[in-house]
Amino acid sequence: NQASVVANQLIPINTALTLVMMRSEVVTPVGIPAEDIPRLVSMQVNRAVPLGTTLMPDMVRGYA
C-alpha cells in the first residue's frame, strides 16, 4: 500500500504548499504519492482543499 499526500489543514485556493500543510497517509483512492511531498513545496493549489482531503494531481498547479 502506497502512502498518498493528505491535507493537514484547510488549504485555501491559490495557496503555496508548505511541509506543515501536508502529511502522508495510506488512503483510497490513491492520490499524489507521499514521496513527491518535497516537490510539492511552493506549488499552488487551484482549489480549496479541506482538512483530510487526498491531494490529486489536478489539484496542484504545475504538478501533472
Score class of each variant (00 low, 15 high):
residue 2 Q to P: 09
residue 20 V to K: 11
residue 8 N to C: 03
residue 1 N to V: 15
residue 59 M to R: 03
residue 41 V to Q: 06
residue 38 P to S: 14
residue 5 V to M: 02
residue 12 P to A: 10
residue 33 P to A: 11
residue 18 T to H: 04
residue 20 V to A: 14
residue 31 G to D: 00
residue 43 M to Q: 11
residue 25 E to M: 15
residue 22 M to V: 11
residue 36 D to T: 09
residue 39 R to N: 10
residue 54 T to S: 05
residue 3 A to T: 12
residue 6 V to I: 15
residue 31 G to N: 01
residue 24 S to C: 04
residue 40 L to T: 01
residue 30 V to L: 10
residue 21 M to N: 10
residue 50 P to E: 14
residue 60 V to R: 00
residue 19 L to C: 04
residue 11 I to K: 00
residue 33 P to G: 08
residue 19 L to F: 08
residue 53 T to I: 09
residue 33 P to M: 07
residue 24 S to R: 12
residue 60 V to Q: 00
residue 47 R to Y: 13
residue 31 G to W: 02
residue 32 I to F: 03
residue 56 M to I: 11
residue 45 V to I: 10
residue 6 V to R: 04
residue 63 Y to N: 05
residue 13 I to C: 03
residue 49 V to R: 03
residue 48 A to H: 08
residue 39 R to S: 09
residue 28 T to F: 09
residue 54 T to V: 11
residue 57 P to R: 05
residue 24 S to P: 07
residue 57 P to C: 04
residue 15 T to G: 08
residue 26 V to P: 06
residue 15 T to S: 11
residue 25 E to T: 11
residue 3 A to W: 11
residue 50 P to A: 08
residue 12 P to G: 06
residue 15 T to N: 05
residue 17 L to I: 11
residue 26 V to S: 13
residue 33 P to S: 11
residue 26 V to E: 07
residue 40 L to H: 01
residue 49 V to A: 08
residue 23 R to V: 06
residue 37 I to T: 08
residue 22 M to T: 02
residue 24 S to E: 12
residue 10 L to Y: 12
residue 15 T to E: 13
residue 51 L to E: 14
residue 62 G to D: 09
residue 43 M to K: 14
residue 28 T to P: 02
residue 22 M to W: 02
residue 30 V to R: 13
residue 63 Y to C: 03
residue 48 A to L: 09
residue 56 M to W: 06
residue 41 V to T: 09
residue 19 L to V: 06
residue 14 N to R: 07
residue 6 V to K: 04
residue 54 T to H: 03
residue 37 I to A: 10
residue 17 L to E: 00
residue 60 V to L: 11
residue 47 R to D: 10
residue 48 A to G: 05
residue 22 M to C: 03
residue 59 M to S: 06
residue 29 P to Y: 04
residue 19 L to Q: 13
residue 14 N to V: 03
residue 7 A to E: 02
residue 48 A to C: 05
residue 14 N to C: 04
residue 38 P to L: 08
residue 8 N to S: 15
residue 31 G to M: 02
residue 27 V to N: 04
residue 29 P to T: 06
residue 50 P to Y: 08
residue 61 R to H: 08
residue 39 R to K: 15
residue 28 T to N: 12
residue 29 P to G: 04
residue 31 G to A: 04
residue 37 I to M: 13
residue 5 V to C: 04
residue 40 L to P: 00
residue 19 L to T: 11
residue 60 V to A: 01
residue 49 V to C: 04
residue 18 T to E: 07
residue 25 E to V: 14
residue 30 V to T: 11
residue 58 D to H: 08
residue 21 M to H: 14
residue 33 P to C: 04
residue 34 A to K: 08
residue 2 Q to W: 10
residue 9 Q to D: 10
residue 26 V to M: 14
residue 45 V to N: 03
residue 63 Y to Q: 04
residue 14 N to T: 04
residue 32 I to C: 03
residue 41 V to N: 05
residue 21 M to E: 02
residue 14 N to A: 13
residue 13 I to S: 10
residue 5 V to R: 00
residue 42 S to Q: 06
residue 11 I to T: 01
residue 19 L to P: 09
residue 1 N to T: 13
residue 37 I to F: 04
residue 3 A to M: 15
residue 31 G to I: 01
residue 41 V to S: 04
residue 1 N to Y: 13
residue 12 P to E: 15
residue 30 V to H: 14
residue 16 A to S: 09
residue 8 N to M: 14
residue 55 L to S: 00
residue 18 T to V: 07
residue 1 N to E: 11
residue 49 V to Y: 02
residue 4 S to F: 03
residue 18 T to A: 10
residue 23 R to L: 05
residue 34 A to Q: 08
residue 52 G to Y: 05
residue 3 A to I: 07
residue 37 I to R: 08
residue 5 V to D: 00
residue 19 L to D: 10
residue 3 A to F: 14
residue 30 V to C: 04
residue 34 A to V: 15
residue 6 V to Y: 02
residue 41 V to H: 04
residue 8 N to Y: 06
residue 44 Q to I: 14
residue 34 A to Y: 07
residue 41 V to W: 04
residue 45 V to L: 08
